[in-house]
Amino acid sequence: MEEKKHTMTMLVDNQPGVLSRVSGLFSGKGFNIESLCTAPTMDPKVSRITIVTKANPPVIEQVEKQLRKLINVIKLRDMTGARAVKREMALICVKARPDLRAEILRIVDIFRCKVIDVGTEHYIIEVTGDEGKLKALINLLKPMGIKKIARSGSLALYREPK
C-alpha cells in the first residue's frame, strides 16, 4: 500500500511530559515523524501539537487511534487535503558572494521572503509558505551554497466555513 504524507494536529493538555507521551508513542510503535511542532493555544491549559507523518492507510488509522487513546490528547484531526491551510517557516543562511547578492535578492523578492540578517559573506532569509514553496526556494538557493537551515515544521488549521 502506498505511503502518503499526513498532517495531524491535536489539542493536548499543556502539562509536562505530554509531548514525550506523543513522541514516545511514535517511536515505540515504529511510526515515523517528519516534523513536529508544539506551542500553547489561546487557552493556557491547552497546547496544539502538529505532526507530519508518512505512512500507508492502515498505519495512519492506527496512528490516529493510538493518539486518541492517550489520556492527554483532547482532540485530534487529520489536516491532510485541501480543507486545511498549512504553512511552514524556515530560516535559511545562504552564502552571499558579491557577484550573487543581487540574484539572491531577486529570488527573495519573487518568493516574498525577507532578509533578516546581512553579513559580508551571507544573508539569513526568512520564508513562510507551504511545503512546495519552501522546496522551490531551497532548490534555487542551493547552487549559491546554503550554510545552515532551520525549519519550523508544518503548522495547520482547518479553514472556517465561508
Partner: peptide, 14 residues
C-alpha cells in the same frame, strides 16, 4: 519512573 513506565501504563502521574 514516570518516564520509564510511560509506554507500559494506561496513564501515569508525577
Amino acid at each position: 519512573i514516570v518516564g520509564i513506565t510511560r509506554p507500559c501504563t494506561k496513564h501515569n502521574y508525577l
